[in-house]
Design a protein around this nucleic acid. Structure first.
Length: 501
RNA sequence: GGUUUCCUGGCCGAGCGGUUAGGCACAGCUCUGCAAAAGCUGCUACAGCGGUUCGAAUCCGCUGGAAACCUCCA
């Protein structure tokens, strides 16, 4: 890419877009909070990981060496009643805690595969990093920012805030005074000196199943700790980007920052990125209140909220039509529009890739069409450079697509575009669709495409003969029957082509 | 109650002080045996009221509406 462009990223810490400058040249360290594996992944999770997949892919395209760390949280995440999430799942289903974690981890991976996200470079599990977490608790204690009560260890928020003005609240924008005045009445809080304090080590109760020995008690680490420990382990004390869903800003990310400062007196990430929520019925999609639609339901068309099944790639494309920092409302109409838009764009790419490039009959002059296309290509990349604005890139691709169809339909001369411009269009389209957007054509055929192509060319050939003899009944029967099995016949000047619907 | 964000044409959704974003839907036209596909044209909106400015969807204020966080969630 050229040097005049600069990648801008919206940083939650500053509240504005900043030009991205890696700590180590040509390298990006990115940590994204992964799922807590006690339940099936829902669509909201998917949107966040698709968003970061685009970010991951764009960094790769720009030539960065990326270490993308996305954790699996399989312990330490407390529910309202203070029961560990994993052991809760295990009691409900009569399974070992690790069995529950394993099942939903596999389910999560399968969903990520279906949505065509690239795997992270490292996917650490909280249970695999207990020593690191214990070590971090000790570091925080050594620096006097935590205290032990009855075998549990609590982070001392007021002390941390006093010693580090402006640090607590830097992610969530929360004012500490507001936290002081809150009258939250949570259980198991009696040990805390202050309501804003939070546990970094919890002493186990008899019913807790996942426990480890530590200098303070047999117990388990606090929720926020695993991300602090694992990001430090794999990306260093200070790294480039930390991401996650909007709803993790507080308390999770806020406390993460506090812990990292507490342990090493340095900020974990320079840039914090937060994705926005997926909405259903104009409300946040949420597992806990039932306002949710599962990916499986969406793909199978069994949800009450949709009229039909939507392919995973349609859902992915739907997510890309909006910016990652905007809320996105799931509606049947919007999905329908996305489906049509997706199919058209994929078809456009197919047609474009098949266009011949004739260097010979080109007169050598750059014309208005060339300039328009080049500008649109530039615009697509500028969109991505501007905080990963996929909506702008898609708009530009659609406009380029208009040229593709005009040439394919001979409404524009084949040599209307300079050969090198046409070549650049091909590369750009492919780069965006395959490499950046990670879209594939959802083809269900497995290796028998050659057979299908052969059959289709035979069938269309017979139809063409029928048409030349004005045998409309035969011609229409072929077309209608193909339509019925989901194959759309498109008549053009140079004969018919087909596309699977 | 506190903090914050948002309100764009029939629908979805970009926009970050001066351009028709784009998609879907709809209407007309071209092409066509018919249809579809594709192309072209049209539909030109920014919650309301004030203010700043040569100029505001975009900045400021007020009013109305919605949402998120403050408690587990991406």
């Amino acid at each position: 890419m050229n040097e005049t462009r600069a990648l801008k990223i919206y940083n939650t810490l500053s509240g504005k877009k900043e030009i991205f400058e890696p700590i180590v040249a040509d390298h990006v360290g990115m940590y994204v909070c992964g799922p807590t594996v006690y339940n099936d992944a829902h669509l909201g999770n998917c949107r966040t990981y698709v968003s970061f997949d685009i970010i991951h892919r764009y960094f790769l395209l720009l030539g960065y060496k990326v270490r993308y760390v996305r954790n699996i949280t399989d312990v330490g995440h407390l529910t309202d009643d203070g029961e560990d999430r994993m052991s809760k799942g295990s009691k409900l289903t009569q399974l070992e805690p690790m069995e529950v974690a394993q099942r939903y981890t596999l389910g999560f991976h399968e969903m990520m595969r279906i949505l065509n996200t690239l795997p992270p470079s490292i996917e650490p599990r909280a249970t695999g990093h207990i020593p690191e977490q214990i070590e971090m608790v000790q570091q925080i204690l050594d620096r006097g920012l935590a205290y032990v009560r009855n075998g549990s260890v609590y982070f001392n928020v007021p002390k941390f805030a006093a010693e580090n003005p402006g640090k607590y609240g830097s992610v969530s924008g929360r004012v500490l005074d507001d936290l002081y005045s809150e009258t939250r009445e949570l259980k198991s809080q009696e040990d805390k000196d202050h309501p804003a304090d939070f546990a970094i080590w919890m002493k186990a109760r008899p019913q807790d199943l996942m426990v480890w020995n530590s200098p303070w008690s047999t117990g388990f680490p606090g929720w926020h700790l695993e991300c602090s420990a694992m990001s430090t382990k794999y990306l260093g004390k200070t790294f480039d980007i930390h991401g996650g869903g909007n709803d993790l800003k507080f308390p999770h990310h806020e406390n993460e920052v506090a812990q990292n400062f507490g342990a090493c007196n340095c900020a974990p990430a320079r840039v914090w990125m937060h994705t926005n929520m997926l909405l259903l019925n104009n409300k946040k999609m949420s597992k806990s209140d039932g306002n949710t639609i599962s990916p499986a339901e969406l793909f199978a068309g069994t949800s009450e909220h949709t009229s039909k099944a939507y392919a995973p790639m349609v859902v992915r494309f739907f997510m890309l039509m909006a910016h990652y920092r905007s809320t996105l409302d799931i509606t049947d109409d919007a999905l329908l529009a996305a489906e049509k838009g997706f199919k058209k764009l994929m078809e456009t790419n197919k047609i474009l890739q098949a266009l011949p490039v004739n260097a010979s009959d080109y007169d050598g002059a750059e014309n208005d069409h060339d300039r328009a296309v080049l500008q649109l290509i530039e615009e697509a990349f500028r969109g991505m450079d501007d905080d990963f604005n996929t909506a702008i890139a898609i708009a530009a691709l659609n406009e380029i697509g208009s040229f593709v169809h005009k040439i394919a339909n001979q409404q524009l001369e084949t040599n209307a575009l300079a050969p090198w411009v046409l070549e650049k269009m091909k590369v750009t389209f492919n780069t965006f669709i395959v490499d950046i957007f990670g879209l594939n054509s959802d083809s269900t055929e497995t290796g028998d495409e050659g057979t299908v192509d052969g059959l289709m060319s035979l069938i269309l050939d017979i139809r063409s003969q029928a048409r030349s003899q004005k045998d409309w009944p035969t011609s229409d029967k072929i077309r209608d029957t193909l339509t019925a099995v989901g194959i759309l016949v498109k008549d053009g000047k140079d004969g018919a082509t087909w596309v699977k619907q």
